Amino acid sequence: MYEVYDVGETYADIREGSKAPGGAIWAKEHYDWSAPDTVTWTVSESNFCAPGSYVTALIKPGTGGGSRIHITWNRTPTSTAGRIAALLILATRGAPVASSLRKGLKRLETSTN
């Protein structure tokens, strides 16, 4: 689920979330792509992590075509659901974050072809 509040040339304010065991988790995020090759989304409000928590994606050209994306995930959990999610992400070395990113990129690829 997501809701768009505002979109500018180099930013967007969005509320997004998903259903999890025990209820939904959500965050209102400020996306910023003003820096070249970088997108950062910072939490302004959430039911699972602290304001100021962020994720950054650094995008560089890949070898042999495509792109290489390096994710920095810095979330401070504030609830039981947030702590469980953080433990899962750390224990799997970011697998849920990578999977979510892959799904989003696949949808983007499909919609532009």
Rank of each mutant, 00 (worst) to 15 (best):
S79C: 07
R15A: 10
K60R: 14
R83G: 06
D32Y: 15
L90T: 11
D32G: 06
T40N: 00
S100H: 07
Y5P: 00
K106A: 14
P51I: 01
L88Y: 02
K106Q: 12
E16G: 15
S44E: 11
A91C: 05
Y5I: 09
I14C: 12
S79L: 06
K103D: 07
T38Q: 10
P21N: 07
L108Y: 15
C49I: 04
R93N: 07
E29T: 04
A95S: 06
E16F: 08
E3Q: 14
Y11F: 15
T72C: 03
G66F: 11
N47D: 13
C49L: 00
T40E: 00
S99Y: 13
Y54S: 05
H70N: 08
S111G: 15
S67N: 13
T42K: 02
G104N: 12
R107D: 13
I69M: 02
L105K: 07
L90Q: 09
G22L: 13
R107C: 07
D37C: 03
Y54D: 01
S100M: 12
S79G: 09
L58R: 10
S53Q: 00
W33L: 08
S99Q: 13
W33R: 05
I59G: 01
V39W: 00
A85F: 08
T10F: 09
A35R: 14
P96M: 06
T72Q: 10
P61A: 09
K103N: 09
R83C: 04
R68L: 09
D32A: 09
S67V: 11
R107N: 13
T63Y: 04
T10H: 14
D6F: 13
W26C: 03
S18M: 12
G64S: 08
I25W: 03
Y2V: 08
H70I: 07
I89F: 05
G82C: 06
A12Y: 12
N47K: 11
I25C: 07
T80E: 14
S111F: 10
H30M: 08
L88R: 04
D13C: 11
G64P: 04
H30G: 05
V55Y: 06
Y5D: 10
I69T: 14
S99W: 09
T78H: 02
L90V: 07
S79V: 04
W41Y: 08
A95L: 12
A57E: 01
R68I: 04
E109S: 15
T38Y: 02
S18H: 05
T10D: 14
D32N: 11
D37H: 07
G64C: 08
A50F: 01
T10N: 13
P77T: 06
K106H: 13
L58G: 02
V55P: 00
E3A: 09
V43F: 00
H70D: 08
E9N: 15
Y11W: 15
K106W: 10
D6P: 05
L58M: 07
L88W: 01
R15L: 12
